[in-house]
């Protein structure tokens, strides 16, 4: 696999900042908004967004983590049963605007599961979707993101890897492509 850098550390932080200002435009002081990161990878992005929003607005922003394992559509189609991650939603979503957050928007199946999973906590006023990287023309379902960090054109065999300072030591987004002779 060859890797190409899509966003470097500075570009990641600029993109996060832009996404936050877009959120602020639509959500005022965030009293009726909750941010929910999709496990396992969306939670890092959700935490960054929370941090950045709190820095800009000086308000606390309610954030949670949602596991979607049991709502997936590929049970028994995978080699191994998936072991769930932790869900941490210790607030009500009733009549709130929920912003679901995931790092990469690929087929749309994860966010579809996320929509089903979040509804088990109540009836939100509306649900929005924020993603850092949208892979264009790869969606299997009629779902679109409301906030997009960067749209990229990829082929199915390629893989996007989002790396975070707190996990990998450096903010960076890489695109892995198969070698020509692979």
């Amino acid at each position: 696999m060859n890797s190409t850098e899509i966003l470097n550390s500075l570009q990641v932080s600029l993109t996060l900042r832009r996404l936050c200002f877009q959120l602020i435009e639509n959500h005022d002081d965030f009293t009726d908004t909750v941010i929910v990161g999709l496990q396992p990878n969306g939670i890092y992005l959700a935490n960054r967004i929370k941090k950045e929003l709190e820095l800009i607005t000086n308000q606390s922003v309610v954030t949670g983590a949602l596991d979607i394992t049991f709502f997936r559509d590929d049970f028994r189609r995978k080699e191994k049963p998936l072991i769930p991650s932790v869900t941490n939603i210790d607030f009500t979503i009733e009549n709130k605007v929920v912003v679901l957050v995931d790092d990469v928007f690929f087929t749309g199946r994860t966010i579809r599961s996320g929509l089903d999973a979040i509804m088990t906590f109540g009836r939100p006023k509306s649900v929005e979707f924020l993603t850092l990287i949208e892979r264009r023309f790869t969606q299997h379902l009629p779902i679109r993101a409301d906030y997009i960090g960067q749209s990229i054109d990829t082929i199915n065999e390629e893989r996007v890897s989002v790396q975070w300072k707190e996990v990998h030591g450096k903010d960076q987004i890489l695109l892995y492509s198969p070698n020509e002779n692979e």
Partner: peptide, 26 residues
């Protein structure tokens, strides 16, 4: 340990307002 870890998730689910997941519908 795998059963315990999975059961922790299910315990959280059965304490939600809607206690059902669609996993085994087939």
């Amino acid at each position: 340990n795998t059963i315990f870890k999975t059961a922790e998730s299910f315990k959280e689910i059965i304490n939600r307002p809607i206690k059902k997941v669609p996993t085994l519908r087939d």
